[in-house]
Design a protein around this nucleic acid. Structure first.
Lengths: 225, 225
DNA sequence: TAGATTGTTAATCGATTAACAATC
DNA sequence: TAGATTGTTAATCGATTAACAATC
């Protein structure tokens, strides 16, 4: 697989392509051109062809792309052929929701254990995932090749738990806490899901809209006079 | 408030600034320069000053920025002074977790009602939020000025529910479903929280790492020979 | 063959970085 | 005053878009 200086923007678009291709597949559409795909995703055909060309040649002149083939290629680029081992730290509300509902196996992840400090959840099993004591975490990590840790602990525990994870060889953290984890010295991959950042952006856009509306209203009021 | 063609990238950085400033505030640090801030967030001082300059002048030559003041300014840019009314659609696992745990009021949002189709949850109340029947949704939206809908319904319900929301004047959707909502004709603001997109990017980065490692190992093995 | 559409090279556009005068 | 650091203008860098030869 060709892999050269692929920009972050490109990588963030790949899952969207995947999603759209799955949708086309489900609709029984087996052929798509970069223009059609662009139209449906709000991107230019050029951009789509450029994005794909980072990884190889997946289309055919005069025809376009074969949907199932392209789907497989992108899946493979995203590492969906591989199998990763995951653990989850912090069986609170969001952690519990992820264990019960998020289909880790759809994306090549095996969630093998969860960890918490609360005695009332330790020892129980949710959706076949056993909840172990936080005290067992270091040993577990030493004995099992865990690729990724899903971090769903309370704010204050985020940094100390991260230290344990990186010290015991976890490669990547899927961070659901509202804490900036990126430590300058660490080589651990961090992917953030910051609910509140997302909501604040939304708040900005609504706020902008409201400002525009009242500006327009003010202009019209002046014109009336 | 100065508001001219602010790029999306800038807006996505604002919540991070806010978070860091809150952190500094909590540490009792009341003064910060663009270099210090840049160091802590992994950004250049230039970029930070450029970002702020989109909205006005918040600093002082030779001194830097006054943390509490800057915090307030950015909060206000993000629309945190305003109060928005929100409803939540789909009281499944993730919806329930958000109602119980996500502090909407911290960000200026009032969650006034939730909606679901399941008879067993309709009529109940979680964290003071009443769960109403989906059938009541259109009337509720007509009678209340709802700014944003939190969409936590199953995949298949995403599009039909979105139609109802936009038809009844909801301005923005905070989309937790794994479905592309952006319809070309609609003017509704959509903010996506795509867990699986996030996990797939992470998968890409891990996969890249693994490839690099095995490439290096192969090179070394050749050298040994 | 003619039409369509790719992959890629070149042109444009926008975002980030650097530099520096202004000034606290 | 001297030192520090801003806000802003100019330079650089990178990403997106346009154009087009190759070819199915």
């Amino acid at each position: 697989m060709k892999r050269l200086k692929v920009s972050n923007n490109v990588i963030r678009r790949l899952p969207r392509y995947l999603r759209k291709l799955d949708e086309l597949n489900a609709q029984g559409i087996s052929r798509v051109s970069s223009s059609e795909l662009g139209q449906q995703l709000g991107l230019t055909p050029s951009q789509i062809r450029q994005d794909f060309s980072c990884f190889g040649e997946f289309g055919q002149q005069g025809y376009g792309y074969h949907v199932p083939t392209l789907r497989e290629q992108i899946g493979s680029i995203l590492g969906m052929d591989r199998s990763y081992q995951a653990v989850l730290i912090g069986v609170g509300n969001i952690g519990h929701a992820l264990i019960d509902n998020f289909c880790f196996s759809d994306w090549g992840f095996r969630l093998t254990a969860a960890f918490d400090v609360k005695p009332e959840v330790i020892g129980s099993t949710f959706n076949k995932v056993p909840v172990l004591s936080m005290e067992e975490l270091p040993r577990y990590l030493d004995e099992n090749p865990v690729n990724i840790a899903v971090l769903t602990v309370p704010k204050d525990a985020a940094i100390p738990v991260t230290r344990i994870l990186t010290a015991h060889g976890v490669e990547a953290i899927w961070n659901f806490t509202n804490v900036e984890l990126t430590e300058p010295n660490s080589s651990t991959i961090v992917e953030n899901v910051h609910f509140s950042d997302s909501l604040l952006s939304l708040s900005y856009y609504i706020s902008e809209r409201i400002d525009e509306r009242s500006a327009r209203a003010a202009r019209e009021a002046r014109r009336e006079k």
